[in-house]
Computed example of a mutant assay.
Amino acid sequence: MKYDFRLRQPVGRKTYLTISVATFITVILGWSLITASGLVKPMFLPELSSVFANIMEGIKDGSLGENTAISIYRITMGFLAAAVLGIPLGILCGCFKKAEAVIGPLCEFIRYMPVPAFVPLVMVWAGIDELAKIVVVFIGTFFQMVLMIADDTASVPEDLLSASYTLGTKRWATIFKVLIPAMGPRIMLTLRIAIGWAWTYLVVAELVASNSGLGYTILRAQRFFHTDAIFSGILVIGILGLITDRLFALAIKKMFPWDERSDA
């Protein structure tokens, strides 16, 4: 059946994967053609072969594995701290208007502040060790997460809550036994988005007196105009981010197979 580009028209899984793979192949071919033609100097856009050679060199000498491991640790700790604090506060904000009046405007205000501007303050507050990097990732994800979880909470149908009251549940029982299970898929989708922010703020976090990590390798390569090393670092972060996203998508599908968004 011919695809007519109607809004939200579904496509088969095979067609979706074919289009996705073809898009990546097109980008790679375009990159290769541009660099091979000599239209762009290698200092601005290196050849793919040199980028992959840099990655392989990092694998062989072990530096890539070490930097990847420390970056994953920093992101994981910052993200978990944001989730542990952000999810309860977001639910509280979405359930009670007085809590929203306290939490909502403050988070709305802070989330527009540029995270890099906090780096000097973080160095004063948390020093220059691992805690400082974790705090930067936390700042970059926490305030957005609180607001999104609050929206997720508010999106639970009022009829569902009313039905639970009719069946005799009290306020806190309704929250824990009805509201939170109902918003489970949305919470996971919010976390899936938030982990993307964590990877985005990795380079910012590793501005804080770092001598290791993927962000650090990119910044070090920038000083010496090693564009191939910059691209290899960006590529590795992109691959790790994609893997993380797919893991969240798989978890959502396994945890909530009945939810239509679990096929994303």
Rank of each mutant, 00 (worst) to 15 (best):
A173P: 02
P181R: 00
K170S: 12
T166C: 09
W172T: 09
A163P: 14
V178M: 03
F176T: 10
K177R: 09
M183Q: 11
T190K: 02
R192K: 13
F176S: 12
I180F: 09
L191N: 04
M188D: 04
I175C: 09
T190Y: 04
Y165C: 03
T174G: 09
T166K: 07
I193R: 06
P185G: 06
K177S: 12
G184T: 07
L191I: 04
S164Q: 14
M188I: 12
V178R: 03
P181C: 00
P185A: 01
A182C: 10
M188E: 05
I193G: 09
A182N: 04
T174P: 08
R171A: 05
K170F: 13
R186Q: 11
L179I: 09
I187P: 07
R192Y: 05
K177T: 07
L191R: 03
A163D: 11
I193A: 13
I180N: 08
L167G: 05
T169D: 01
T166W: 06
A173D: 08
V178K: 11
G184N: 03
P185T: 02
L167A: 06
W172L: 10
P185D: 04
P181L: 00
M188K: 01
L179H: 05
G184K: 02
S164G: 13
I175R: 02
L191K: 04
Y165K: 14
S164V: 14
I175L: 06
F176G: 12
M183C: 02
Y165A: 15
R171Y: 08
F176E: 01
K177P: 06
T169L: 12
A182Q: 04
M183R: 03
R186P: 02
R171G: 10
G168E: 09
R171S: 03
R192N: 03
I180H: 04
A173N: 10
I193M: 14
L167D: 06
K177V: 03
A182I: 03
T190C: 12
K170A: 07
A182P: 12
T166P: 09
R186E: 11
R192H: 04
F176Q: 11
P185H: 00
I180C: 06
K177Y: 11
T166Y: 14
I180M: 12
L179A: 11
G184F: 04
L167V: 12
L167P: 11
R171W: 01
L189V: 14
A182K: 04
R186K: 13
A163L: 15
K177N: 10
A173S: 12
